[in-house]
Amino acid sequence: MEADRREFLKQTGLLLVLTGAAAQAWDFVLAGEPEKAPTYKLLDHWWAMAMDIRKCIGCGNCVRACKTENGVLLEPDCFRTWVERYHVHPDDPEHPEVDSPNGGYDGFPEKYKAGDGSKNFFVPKMCNHCAHSPCVQVCPVGATFESPDGVVLVDKTYCLGCRYCVQACPYGCRYIDPRTETVDKCSLCYHRITKGLTTACCEVCPMGARKLGDLKDPKDPIHDFLKDHMIHVLKPEMATGAKAYYNGLDGSVR
């Protein structure tokens, strides 16, 4: 009984004095390795992605790196990120020709000719990490959610594989992983960004065409990106609160 009371007072005292993150770190301090304590503060971040279509060269580095980092199946319908090629004829901008051979994983073999009057460009696509995600709203079991730091994540232990979210996402960013029959999607490399690293796709993009940004960090260069460019998001009419911000997004892009 005596020991129980002492334990209780110690634990409560610790919680009152340290609270939250510090209490979590205390275990590591006691173990003599304070450098291993988690320093990531959930409420200090609000993640977003800055994409520059004017810079994308369609090399496919992001697609390959994403699959490597996250163990995504090498099937042509399993992508957490992919690149699309747009071929827009100025006479008919409403009907662009879009292709994405194997998501851009193997690059884009030349298909169009220069000087035919058309407009050609690449559009990198991924989860928009919406602040008001349709996919989260339709999940019947709370298996997908917007994290307090602005990332749309999946709880694989909860997912039933009902596919409601796959249909609800206006951007086509979700697929069913045939190995687990649960949904899979871009996690914004949550295991990396919470350790102070950037996402795998941003790490390997040779053009800096996509850059991870923390909107809650006033020193993050994403603020300059948003200020200095004409920015658009995909399907703003859906009011999803998309946080993948595009520079140079053509009106023909769907």
């Binding site: 999946v154 996690s187 949550y190 295991h191």
Partner: peptide
């Protein structure tokens, strides 16, 4: 689930 997502290896 946040910790589950963080636990993925680099």
């Amino acid at each position: 689930a946040l910790a589950d997502n963080m636990a993925h290896p680099l």
